[in-house]
Simulated assay, not measured.
Amino acid sequence: MKELLSAKKIKIIFILAFMSSLAPLSTDMYLPALSEVQIAFHTNPFYMQLSIVSFFLAFSLGQLIYGPISDVYGRKIPLYVGLIIFIVSTFACLSVDSIYAFIVFRFLQALGGCAGVVITRAIVNDNFSFKEASSIFALIMVTSSLAPMLSPTFGSLLLDYFSWKSIFTTLFILGIILLLCVIFGLKDIKEKRNNLKLDTKHVLKNYITILKDRRFRIYIFSSAFAMATIFAYIAGSSYIFREYYGLSEKAYGILFGLNAFSFIIFANINAQITLKYSYSPYSILPKAFFIMFIIALLLICVGIFRLHFVFFEILLFFMIGMLGFVAPNTTTLAMARFKNNSGSASALFGTTQFLIAGFVAFIVSVIEANSPLPLAFVIAMCLIVASSIYFFIIPRRR
């Protein structure tokens, strides 16, 4: 464990976590300012939603661009390009006076910010052994998970004292700080340069080759459906806790933070046991998915029998916590399948995860999950599908 906590590795983990957090920060800090931005641009809620959708679209599909580029030209060049696009487009969001231009630059902001997310996974896969990778991914996720937990509060705090532009000013400054951290703090990161081409034919062929790998598909889809429960929870929990169960806004905020903290606790435990006690992701994942399968069944029971919200909350706490075991280990195993083209593998991993999670959140909105049963049913179905997909690998692996 001393090796993991060396100053050099702590620095790398911090920078990589920063890289993974910048794009999520750009969304979560922005959400409290929607009404102010709407007033500033004299527009309507439709365009505000469009500014969010455009960001998510670019964030999802942009990863497919950076993955192959980073495999050919190394990790730093596309990362520099992405961060510069992020910084310039963030500044542009502060300067424009048209909602249409604002939406375009939000799209470009996500297109630049997603570089850090996809390249982070590639850098870990390039520079750390299989044994270390699971711990590193877990520690990065522990650090980066603070972003969605704290950024809405921080965004609201800025709005209490300044205008909505203060949020984009903060993001602009963070982008510059991250660029400097990458330039001066990632000097020793290995660069991956392969005999790959960037024409459409070779890129698609490479993606098809990766997707043909059965185990890779199992890891990315089981992880994607498991992580989709977070999106479902975010989409439906506010109304259920505040309207259905009658909790105050303060109580809901405390529970939201507590549930987010459960991921940090469990991911930190995962980091400890994989490196210090040499537990393999192969031995951790079956147990984690089995427990999540049980949680899925219990959630449905809570919804059917309309049990007290305490039971619902306890199950949500452990569900989110178990993702601290699932996320880093599925990431490690999926990325380990393709050491020579980590960028492309990371791009497929991230895009698949985000598209499935976004679709699940859409389903929650469509069915208007305003009571525990429909939300529990969606979450349970995600967990059951994730567990079922993963356990397909067990007979062949044995």
Rank of each mutant, 00 (worst) to 15 (best):
323 L>G: 08
123 I>E: 09
306 R>D: 14
236 G>V: 07
50 L>H: 03
86 F>K: 02
105 F>S: 06
89 S>V: 09
56 F>K: 04
49 Q>C: 07
360 V>G: 04
146 L>N: 01
178 L>Q: 05
177 I>P: 01
137 F>N: 12
149 M>A: 15
302 V>D: 13
150 L>H: 01
272 Q>D: 05
357 A>R: 10
324 G>H: 10
217 R>M: 13
69 I>N: 04
239 Y>M: 10
11 K>P: 01
394 I>D: 00
75 R>C: 00
207 Y>M: 11
309 F>Q: 08
397 R>V: 08
322 M>C: 14
135 S>E: 04
363 I>E: 05
214 R>S: 13
312 F>H: 08
327 A>V: 14
334 A>Q: 03
155 G>R: 12
344 S>V: 07
263 F>K: 07
174 L>K: 00
216 F>R: 04
244 Y>I: 09
188 D>T: 15
71 D>T: 07
346 S>M: 11
398 R>L: 14
391 F>K: 12
282 Y>C: 05
387 S>R: 13
208 I>Q: 11
115 A>L: 06
280 S>A: 03
63 Q>M: 15
311 F>A: 13
19 M>Q: 05
141 M>I: 11
155 G>T: 09
100 Y>F: 14
100 Y>G: 04
220 I>P: 05
44 N>K: 12
237 S>G: 09
41 F>W: 07
398 R>P: 00
374 P>K: 06
234 I>S: 00
67 G>K: 08
154 F>C: 04
